[in-house]
Design a protein around this nucleic acid. Structure first.
Lengths: 213, 213
DNA sequence: TGTACATCAGTGAACGCGCGTTCACTGATGTAC
DNA sequence: TGTACATCAGTGAACGCGCGTTCACTGATGTAC
């Protein structure tokens, strides 16, 4: 029994993936600095050298992990998007989606700080390509689409639409960072929740140039 | 001549300060991870051991550097505050100051990325005390004061005043982070400047619940 | 004013650590004939 | 269907690196009498 579990199989069969999963788990527990090639190999039960059959370098492994982290983040945004009850009014619905995306973003940062930080850590990869996957990911596409819809509905005008994806993104990103590395980390949950709601209000107001409602 | 420059002085006289300055310079050039005790000692021309006469540990040195970084950041905010022409209308003046503080914050992050990142890097210090100095620093006091003024002037109401310092701070902080570690780092300057202005607009709108003007 | 001595503020060598990476290797697998 | 052999996917030992930190030490300074 349990042949696939036995470690006597010399050829692992799926080592690249197993190492990526282990490394992702390290990121989850300790952020980008915890992604240590030797430790990932250790957890899989394989020599550190074996990793070099599947990853060119430590940087290569980190880059793989980062991609996974970005996917996880976007997944949470989509989950929040799908979780709420759609509004019948198109304007209210687009606003609901804007908030849901932001809420998912912040919620993810707070519940998975290690993954979130790894998704945005510095790297030596070509900066041009480093973010392509993220910016074309469903979560961010949904943000852009929502803003475009708001523009079409006349909720926001051309001037406010300009760069609105970065303005709104900055806002939730900053709050996430202040929770993780900044002075907001020690706030009691009710206050934190209030700040989150106020920030989502503010992001909507920033994009629209006026309060929602 | 040049007796104070000669290295034959066995007792340095101001080694604690010299090490702090060297370490701050390391942070300036390479961020928090570049703050290496041995390197700071090297730059001062002293053995690594000597540092332990003045700092309990590497962490202690980093904490000192962080405090300096926070002071530099706040200094830039105040500079921006003083740089602009005051408006005669109190409402417009408070808005001008809100924008100036934000502009100083973002400008500092972009011109001194290493210092900015060190000001907000993780540390093992007691989280309660870690941010006290920052939150009571003139720059942040100015932010709170400005928001209070806007409240008194009736530009913002009680509901919007609540947590407004964190809402507005998050916004500029997030933009700063996306410039440094995120996908905004490679943007051409004109686009970056536009995003900055739109973000300052947005922060004001978020706080006020409506566009300025 | 001189001198004895405690204390201060440095020195250089060394330790242990864990990392990324390389090396020569070997057992397992797949393919040609 | 068997066999020879190339290739694949691992192994374990070792290297060099730079770090924070400790150790026993020593030269310089300041103070009491």
């Amino acid at each position: 029994m349990s042949q696939p579990e036995r470690r006597d199989r010399y050829h692992h069969g799926d080592l690249a993936n197993a190492l990526a999963v282990a490394a992702l788990d390290l990121a989850r527990k300790g952020g980008p600095e915890a992604v240590v090639l030797r430790e990932a190999a250790r957890q899989v039960g394989v020599s550190a050298t074996a990793a070099y059959r599947h990853f060119a370098s430590h940087d290569d492994l980190v880059e793989t992990v980062r991609a996974h982290c970005q996917v996880e983040l976007v997944g949470r945004m989509e989950t929040q998007l799908a979780a709420g009850e759609p509004e019948s009014d198109p304007g209210r619905e687009s606003l609901r989606r804007l908030r849901a995306l932001g809420r998912g973003y912040i919620e993810f940062a707070r519940s998975e700080p290690g993954i979130f930080q790894t998704a945005f850590c510095r790297s030596d990869a070509a900066p041009d390509q480093q973010w392509d996957a993220l910016l074309t990911a469903p979560g961010f596409v949904a943000l852009i689409k929502t803003l475009d819809e708001m523009r079409e509905l006349g909720i926001i005008d051309d001037a406010h639409r300009s760069q609105a994806e970065f303005v709104s993104w900055s806002m939730v990103h900053g709050l996430a960072m202040l929770f993780l590395d900044g002075p907001l980390g020690t706030l009691p949950p009710p206050v934190a929740d209030l700040i989150i709601e106020r920030t989502l209000d503010g992001a909507a107001a920033a994009v629209m140039g006026r309060d929602a409602v």
